[in-house]
Amino acid sequence: MYAFELVRPATVAEAVAALAEDGAQALGGGQTLIPTLKARLAMPEKLVSLGGIAELRGVTVEGDEVRIGGGTPHATVAHEVAKAYPALASLAERIGDPHVRNRGTIGGSLANNDPSACYPAAALASGATIVTNKREIAADDYFQGMFATALDEGEIITEVIFPIPQAAHYEKIRQPASRFPLVAVFVAKFADGVRVAVTGAAENGVFRWTEAEEALSADFSPSAVEGLSADSDGMIGDMHGTPEYRAHLIGVMTRRAVAAAG
């Protein structure tokens, strides 16, 4: 790692002030950022740790929505939303490993927007709202391609609001080495329609599979998406799978997610 200063603000306001400085970067749980720093692929002058900010942590369930503080670790989410939003809890408890889940945060995951991360699929399929220190951003506007989001420099995710669907499921096939999703699909059925978000597959990161959404909104059953196949154009191709394989898996994962969501 290159040398940097590490600061631990106690409030969002202090963090925002610290992040306003040149060369400052936010540090969430660090589960992706620290390995990146070790490889010297990033060179911040100052790291602003969000780990000491109590107001960023916590889960509340209110009516038909779940609100999760941006600094909440995956393990807490898995535990706290198990009743209110089991599909989201199930996603959280399958991220990385137990140690990563004790450190990694939802805000960190969404801010990083790794094309193979789990949380973006849940946020997009749920039609979540990303709340920052400045504004509220709809998930549909938030994800802007691989590692790209609507966040401005120094903007911090303070909360994520998930509407709770009638039925949902997250189906994933793991990349054998990293254990990130090779392809994973989050299906969420709401009163006004079905949303299907795909992660791990596309070069541009998480996306909605609109053809499947239409078919499932008309008939929420595995057979509705039988024979439907995603386009391999723009899919990731690497040693773990060709674009064609990933496109194929999107169909399989979607069918299985619908079957499991019931």
């Binding site: 054998p176 080495a177 990293s178 254990r179 690497d238 040693m239 773990h240």
Partner: peptide, 16 residues
């Protein structure tokens, strides 16, 4: 090297 870390070199894990 396209498998320069455990992100791409798949080590057998307990659940494999």
């Amino acid at each position: 090297i396209t498998t320069g870390s455990y992100m791409d070199y798949a080590m057998p894990r307990s659940n494999d």
